[in-house]
Design a protein around this nucleic acid. Structure first.
Length: 271
DNA sequence: AGTGCGGCCTGTCCGC
DNA sequence: TGCGGACAGGCCGCAC
């Protein structure tokens, strides 16, 4: 589900409610996520506080003095702030309960998400150490993308969805950024010109920033930390719009499968 | 090293 | 109504 804008929306939403709040207990109802949750989490976190709420790519990092909780929402995960006694449903797998009666609740029907504990610098963790740059940071530049795409035959859409190249871009925003940049999603990465890399980097930044501003995209079930949807769906140009007219030229938007994922594009505006 | 899949899960929707 | 199959905001880990 969540790409960078949804994860950032979630991070901003939970931060004021959990930063520097004392953890009373951790309730694990289902530990079988993508990787098993550490069963000692209650013992580890009890009595401590989160001193920073960060994001790296699609990971949310909750740091205590002793270590860091690494959260990933997978395809269907969400985090909400609720009262500790609010009734839970069958996919509410974990509660982190604070002494002020508030609760950070992890919900994930498909269980592709993850909750991992590490005592090390999270940047050194196996899952994070090989990640590419943040798309909104300076080191994600036209030069960088041009260099990394040289010699690559893989489609440009797949390349920008590869978190080892650049983090945070999933299926929706890859399609949207390529539309804004006027580039066919199936173009071999190595054939992009320097100029096209420049345009694409700017398009990625633009679409992510605007989506963050709108609180993310809700297609079906994404909700923010207050349980409310994001509003970027209304501003999608191609994603989910197969056979509907392109917003620029009225040609019908096409859908095709790329690496097993649906790709949407305008055959006229994207070359 | 780069590329392409299978697999992890549950839910929903669509056609028969 | 029931049932099978396709599909869904991700990504690791494995073959080739």
């Amino acid at each position: 589900m969540p790409e960078l804008p949804e994860v950032e929306t979630t991070r901003r939403g939970i931060e004021p409610h959990i930063l520097h709040k004392t953890i009373e207990r951790v309730i694990i109802r289902e530990s079988r996520l993508r990787w098993p949750i550490n069963r000692q989490l209650n013992r580890i976190l009890q009595g401590s506080q989160f001193r920073a709420i960060d994001r790296r790519g699609k990971y949310i990092l909750l740091s205590t003095q002793a270590g860091t909780l690494i959260l990933h929402l997978g395809m269907s995960g969400s985090l909400r702030i609720v009262d500790h006694n609010s009734p839970h449903d069958k996919h509410d797998h974990v509660d982190i309960v604070f002494s002020n009666g508030k609760c950070l609740r992890f919900h994930d029907p498909r269980k592709f998400g993850a909750i991992l504990w590490t005592r090390e610098d999270p940047g050194q963790h196996k899952l994070l150490s090989t990640l590419g740059p943040e798309p909104l940071a300076k080191d994600f530049s036209a030069d960088y993308l041009f260099t990394r795409s040289r010699g690559r035959k893989t489609a440009i859409k797949n390349l920008i969805m590869d978190s080892h190249i650049v983090v945070g871009i999933g299926n929706i925003y890859a399609c949207e950024a390529l539309f804004l940049a006027g580039i066919r999603p199936g173009t071999a990465s190595g054939r992009l010109s320097r100029r096209q890399c420049q345009v694409l980097v700017e398009a990625i930044r633009q679409v992510l920033q605007q989506a963050i501003g709108a609180g993310g995209t809700t297609l079906r079930d994404f909700t923010n930390s207050e349980g409310k949807p994001g509003y970027f769906k209304q501003r999608l140009h191609v994603y989910g719009r197969e056979n509907q007219p392109c917003s620029q030229c009225a040609q019908l938007v096409k859908r095709r499968l790329q690496a097993g994922r649906s790709t949407f594009y305008c055959p006229v505006c994207q070359r």
